[in-house]
Amino acid sequence: MLLALNPLVKPDPGLFIWATVAFLLLFILLRAFAWKPIVAALDERERNIEDALSKAEMAKQEMAKLTSENEQLLKQARAERDAILKEAKELKDQIVSDAKKSAQTEGNKLIEKAKLEINAQKAAAMAEVKSQVVSLSLEIAEKVLRKQFEDQGKQQALVNDLLKEVKLN
């Protein structure tokens, strides 16, 4: 037999039997106690990782949504703030302008009043001065007249003058 020529290629029945027994034993024991839990654990872990990844993805999306919402809120808030500021400014302007206007009218009124007063005072003063001048003039005139008319001649002359002047027109 050709196979029997070299011990290297001659199958040894004893070793074959032992190898079969050992390998089958190894296979059965490993299948029960090692491969099942290991493969199950690996699958479980992989599933967990996949779950975690999908969860992370979802969280990311949620986050993005939240961020965009936040941004919108911020925008809105900013717009609101701007509106409020604008309103306040307008109000302020109005108040200022109102105040200015009222101050102006008040001032004008005051000035008017003052002018009136001044005019009144002026008129009063003028009236006083006039009356004083009248009385003084009368006094002077009296005194002058008195002096003038101490002498009869002079009186006559004057009357004449006056008569002369009066032309019976």
């Binding site: 199958p11 040894d12 070793l15 074959f16 190898a19 079969t20």
Partner: peptide, 8 residues
């Protein structure tokens, strides 16, 4: 060994 590989 050919016996072992034959078994496998």
């Amino acid at each position: 060994n050919i016996s072992v590989t034959a078994m496998l």
